[in-house]
Design a protein around this nucleic acid. Structure first.
Lengths: 67, 67
DNA sequence: ACCTTTTGTCATGTGACCCTGACTATATGT
DNA sequence: ACATATAGTCAGGGTCACATGACAAAAGGT
């Protein structure tokens, strides 16, 4: 699952730790999601979308259709 | 996390087992999500949204802003 | 009455998603 | 040289999101 977290964070000049604080998760969790180690839970995805004022679909991309 | 899965399924007259097959998950997983036992993973939420032709936000609701 | 379908639930197991703490490496500033 | 900030990673642990298999209750069809 790809995501635009790193770009959105860079646009606001936030560190991974600061983004983690705003999302109420650890900086390691932010790093893991950014580097594609794993996907966020649905509740966390909602918090991310709300923080950036976008929909989940605008931030995350699971590749469209999957045969 | 509330969701409209049961209604959307009823509109199409699908059983939980049939929805599970279309989503490639077990019928118990569908039941657990419908009855609010737990939330789907983000990839599964994408598959659900795509199946019903809606956005994730139109199907799931985590309560808007919550601190 | 019997059979099938559907839903709900329980038990057990595995891997994903979080945590804290620690360590390394790079960059910046004094 | 030293301290600070940031990013990346690993170890160890806890809870949640799946799986399969089984059991029981309710509804419908014959």
């Amino acid at each position: 699952m790809k995501n635009r977290l790193k770009v959105l964070r860079a646009e606001r000049d936030w560190s991974q730790a600061e983004l983690g604080a705003r999302l109420d998760v650890s900086r390691q969790a932010v790093n893991a999601i950014e580097t594609g180690k794993y996907d966020p839970s649905l509740p966390l995805a909602f918090r991310i979308a709300r923080l950036f004022g976008m929909t989940i679909e605008e931030i995350f991309d699971d590749g469209g259709d999957h045969g």
